[in-house]
């Protein structure tokens, strides 16, 4: 049984979408729980992909192929996952903050998060602070992820956090920030709940926050 999950993880790392889907179906036929297939097979594999990408062992095309394989398998699993089996599939609203047009990093985080089965609502770039909050409320997302490349646009992250406090939403909607100008210390100065140093780190931290929710 565990071997099958390890195979799923391994094939996912190779980006073999058809094999991953086949193995997923096989695992279901052998009565493995969809939750285990998701967590111990697919997400476990995607985590390794994220780490290898961070360490420059692989590059973006490999990540994209693995994400594709992940999506195909998750689409197959989704109808079978009953509500209580969904702890890891949370929702996040992401975007590049107002005043900033740089979205490569943000897109990458979006791809990786989708890859591990998180529902990602991507607001694009140059996103006004209110829009982050309004969308999170409307979509009932528990987490807002903000990205910036320019030093001049990081205060907009603070603005989003302030709006959450003003509206008393800061307990129900958490924030995570990332981007070249930021550090853990600066993120905490801004009042963000968490900081991710790169895309792989973002995946790890977002998963953790969504699990805790």
């Amino acid at each position: 049984m565990m071997e099958l999950l390890a195979q799923i993880s391994e094939q996912l790392q190779k980006g073999e979408d058809e094999t991953v889907l086949e193995l997923t179906k096989k695992a279901l036929a052998e009565n493995l729980s969809p939750n285990d297939i998701l967590n111990k097979g697919l997400i476990a594999g995607m985590t390794v992909v994220g780490e290898k990408f961070r360490d420059f062992e692989i590059f973006l095309p490999d990540v994209l192929l693995s994400a594709k394989a992940m999506t195909a398998a998750v689409d197959h699993l989704k109808p079978l996952l009953i509500q209580r089996d969904l702890p890891n599939i949370g929702k996040i609203v992401i975007g590049t903050v107002q005043g900033d047009l740089h979205d490569i990093g943000k897109n990458l985080v979006g791809i990786m998060l989708k890859g591990i089965g998180v529902e990602v609502i991507d607001l694009g770039k140059d996103v006004p602070p209110e829009k982050f909050v309004d969308t999170a409320v409307k979509e009932e997302a528990g987490l807002i992820g903000m990205s910036a490349l320019l030093t001049t646009s990081t205060p907009m992250m603070k603005k989003v956090i302030e709006i959450l406090h003003e509206r008393g939403l800061n307990k129900s909607i958490k924030t995570i920030v990332g981007g070249a100008p930021l550090s853990a210390a600066y993120a905490s100065d801004l009042g963000a709940d968490d900081y991710a140093s790169d895309a792989a780190d973002a995946v790890e931290r977002v998963t953790k926050i969504l699990e805790e929710k």
Binding site: F56, F59, L60, D62, I104
Partner: peptide, 13 residues
């Protein structure tokens, strides 16, 4: 380019 342990690469490898 990005500086990687293997030298300079684009993000697409």
């Amino acid at each position: 380019y990005e500086a990687t342990p293997k030298g300079f690469y684009t993000i697409m490898g």
